[in-house]
Design a protein around this nucleic acid. Structure first.
Length: 478
RNA sequence: GGAGCAUUCGUCUAGUGGUUAGGACGCUGGCCUCUCACGCCGGUAACAGGGGUUCGACUCCCCUAUGCUCUACCA
């Protein structure tokens, strides 16, 4: 490893899926590392044995991979500072806790969960009462001999304050009186986040800790730990949170939060990444469409904003539409086909034509099924506006069109348009009225893509059948 | 309750003592056009409130309000 190499890490706990806020944090870490020719590390923080979820790590990695974040070191990715899963590093944590104990910066706490609950009940507005902090050596020995379970707590100084220089927030001062004696090692032998993240960040030589704002308040504990071990602390950058439209922390209750959700709804990874990058960061110019490469060049921690951002799906939709329209027909086909019925009589050429009709008309891939419904149904259902639009002129147009069409030997969009022009001459009906009638007959809708192309894809027989049906269903009513 | 952080159009944001407070999404008017959509042109809309400092505050300071975060043997 080079001296002064920039090393960032994304350190999620494996709770089952990757949260979009997590993706943004990961992205900022990734961009910062990449633009400095540094390394991006994935570390799994699974020290809570009660919250283990099957396949969670696999899902996390798959979502990161999908989004285009390349992991340099991590579980399954190699690296010289492994293992990258905290539950496999417990021995290391225990050794360091011993050092803390010897140094007097930590102490054993024998308080039972029951006593802790009682203390909390009596004084709900303050933390642990430091009951075990001043136990004598003899008392400790007796309790240990008696086999009493214990945790290790961090000994926070009684007085004074600590300063944090945060890259996005500047200087933040915390009085020690507000920091409590956090548990560092749980009675099951696993470390808490506070201990593990400090030890790992040190040994993994992390240079910049870029994480969510929820960690800001516990940073004093971490800083103190670095001091206790006489380690150089990394630089910190605390990112504001992503919010629901009511400004509460973005949560599952109010919509989709996992990147899998957005992926399956038909958002392109480029759009999601671009959108997330701009949520809390901007390049200082008016541009807002950026590829991952451009983001790597332009991203700057100094331009990250301090306040929370509402995750506005309207703008995401717009941005996704921008990316969809920028795709080549082939690229769009490859993505769109995933949303097309698996069993289909349509040829690849026909599907290609269909998709080309809708590339300009959708902002999400999952709109495709409803758009192609006019092809996948033999007789597409009509909505009320369409039914209401059917009048005697519509029927006249369709009747004449049908009569012209049956006589044709060949059929394509050009011939179709010619027939419609003939219908205009014969009936005198023209413009919007003419074409709307044709739309109703062929697509069963008054709005939509180019009707001549729709007709060509459908073919002569299908068009005739549909026109026939409209005539049959509505002729008697007029 | 306490501590910390935050506060520019509805939303994402630019701004760093002197600007007609800019852009984007959304909404909206128009153009294009057989419709819808795309695209293009235009419009709408903001400095949380109150005190200072200053010749002059969106920009600096203080107070208040509001929101958020933390306050676990979860991360």
């Amino acid at each position: 490893m080079k001296l002064n190499e920039i090393r960032t890490r994304f350190a999620p706990s494996p709770t089952g899926y990757l949260h979009v806020g997590g993706l943004r944090t990961a992205l900022y870490n990734y961009l910062y590392a990449r633009q400095n020719n540094g390394k991006f590390i994935l570390r799994i923080e699974d020290t809570d044995q009660n919250r283990k979820v099957d396949k969670a790590v696999e899902n996390l990695i798959e979502s990161l991979r999908w989004a285009g974040l390349e992991i340099d070191e991590g579980p399954g990715f190699g690296g010289a500072f492994g293992p990258y899963i905290q539950s496999e590093r417990t021995e290391l944590y225990r050794q360091h806790v011993t050092k803390l104990l010897e140094k007097g910066d930590a102490y054993r706490c024998f308080c039972t969960p029951e006593r802790l609950a009682k203390v909390k009940e009596q004084n709900p507005n303050s933390g642990y009462d430091r009951h075990c902090r001043y136990l004598s050596d003899q008392e400790i020995k007796d309790k240990m001999d008696a086999g009493e379970a214990f945790v290790i707590r961090q000994k926070i100084p009684e007085n004074g304050e600590i300063k944090l220089y945060d890259i996005v927030r500047g200087e933040v001062v915390f009085p020690f009186s507000e920091v409590d004696d956090q548990v560092l090692l749980k009675s099951d032998g696993f470390p808490t986040y506070h201990l593990a993240n400090v030890i790992d960040d040190h040994y993994m030589q992390i240079s910049h800790v870029i994480r969510g704002e929820e960690w800001l308040m516990s940073t004093p504990k971490h800083l103190l730990l670095y001091e206790s071990f006489a380690w150089k602390a990394p630089k910190f950058a605390h990112l504001s949170l992503l919010l629901n439209s009511d400004k509460s922390k973005l949560s599952k209750r109010q919509g989709d939060v996992s990147v899998e959700d957005y992926r399956s709804k038909g958002y392109l990874k480029e759009a999601l990444v671009n959108f997330l990058a701009l949520l809390g960061w901007n390049p200082g110019t008016n541009e807002e469409i950026f590829s991952m490469d451009q983001l790597m060049k332009k991203f700057s921690l100094k331009k990250v904003s301090k306040s929370g951002s509402i995750f506005d799906t309207k703008k995401l939709d717009w941005m996704n539409g921008q990316y969809i329209r920028a795709l080549s027909p082939e690229e769009f086909y490859a993505l769109a086909i995933e949303y097309f019925p698996k069993e289909t009589p349509w040829s690849e050429t026909d599907r290609m034509k269909m998709f080309s009709l809708y590339q300009q008309r959708i902002s999400r891939l999952d709109e495709i099924p409803e758009k192609v419904a006019i092809f996948t149904h033999e007789f597409p259902p009509m909505d009320n506006d369409t039914v209401r639009a059917i009048d005697v002129n519509v029927l006249t147009v369709l009747k004449v069109l049908r009569d012209l069409l049956v006589k044709e030997a060949d059929f394509d969009q050009k011939i179709f348009v010619e027939k419609i022009q003939e219908v205009q001459k014969i009936t005198g009906i023209k413009g919007k009225e003419l074409w709307t009638a044709v739309r109703i007959g062929v697509a069963g809708q008054i709005h939509g893509a180019e009707i001549n192309i729709i007709a060509e894809i459908l073919g002569q027989q299908a068009c005739l059948k549909r026109i026939e049906k409209v005539l049959h269903d509505f002729a008697g009513n007029n």
